[in-house]
């Protein structure tokens, strides 16, 4: 009985002291700076510049560095990259005729950029990719009809495209002119259709 009476008054005391401490904590937060960052408009520097250099944003491709090895397309678990390389039969020079990245499929895992031998495929710190149309999320790094000769790395010379801890330029934003996409189902996964470029060297 005595313990019950004791408990009764202990409860009252505990209620008062714990509520006192709780109120003191919440009140003290009125005298601290709020941690909110008022993204996107009321900040001093754009968020893209505040992100660490390792941040995995939208894929960015420097086609000038691409050696046409097709490794990125092979490692991507979702098949969101699509490349095509043609060989000029006269000069034996290989050209990249297509380098498309479908951002809507990409889950920014970083497997392609790690496997790229020259650092042509890398992540930018750009992440604002919202658009009204999914088709706009396909970024075409080689314009239709354009032919870019493959990069030939010089032995012993460090490739210029390997900055690991430096901020990198933003991705090319080409949301406005969406290229037509014709997806095809291959083995249950969406792969892009081979659009029959002349003298296709590689096909997956």
């Amino acid at each position: 009985m005595s313990s019950t009476v004791f408990d009764y008054f202990t409860n009252i005391r505990n209620a008062f002291t714990s509520i006192f401490h709780g109120l003191a904590v919440t009140f003290s937060y009125l005298f601290r700076k709020p941690t909110t960052i008022q993204y996107p408009d009321r900040i001093d520097t754009p968020v893209q510049q505040m992100l660490p250099p390792l941040f995995r944003g939208i894929l960015e491709v420097d086609v000038g560095l691409c050696i046409g090895c097709n490794l990125c397309e092979k490692t991507c678990p979702l098949g969101c990259l699509r490349t095509a390389v043609v060989r000029d039969p006269e000069t034996n020079q290989r050209y990249i005729t297509r380098f498309d990245v479908d951002i809507s499929k990409c889950m920014v895992c970083g497997l392609c950029s790690e496997n790229c031998p020259t650092g042509a495929v890398r992540h930018s710190t750009e992440f604002e990719a919202s658009t009204a149309n999914m088709v706009n999320l396909v970024i075409r790094y080689v314009k239709p009809g354009e032919r870019i000769p493959v990069h030939k790395p010089v032995k012993g010379e460090e490739s210029p495209g390997l900055p690991q801890n430096e901020p990198i330029a933003r991705a090319h934003k080409e949301w406005d002119e969406p290229p037509p996409v014709d997806p095809d189902q291959v083995r249950g996964r969406v792969r892009w259709k081979n659009d029959g470029a002349p003298e296709e060297e590689q096909s997956s």
Binding site: P52, L54, F55, R56, M107, V108, C109, G110, E114
Partner: peptide, 14 residues
Amino acid sequence: ERICGARINYSYMR
């Protein structure tokens, strides 16, 4: 984010 480049879906280990 500084360790692995992402905030939620880390995909950190290989």
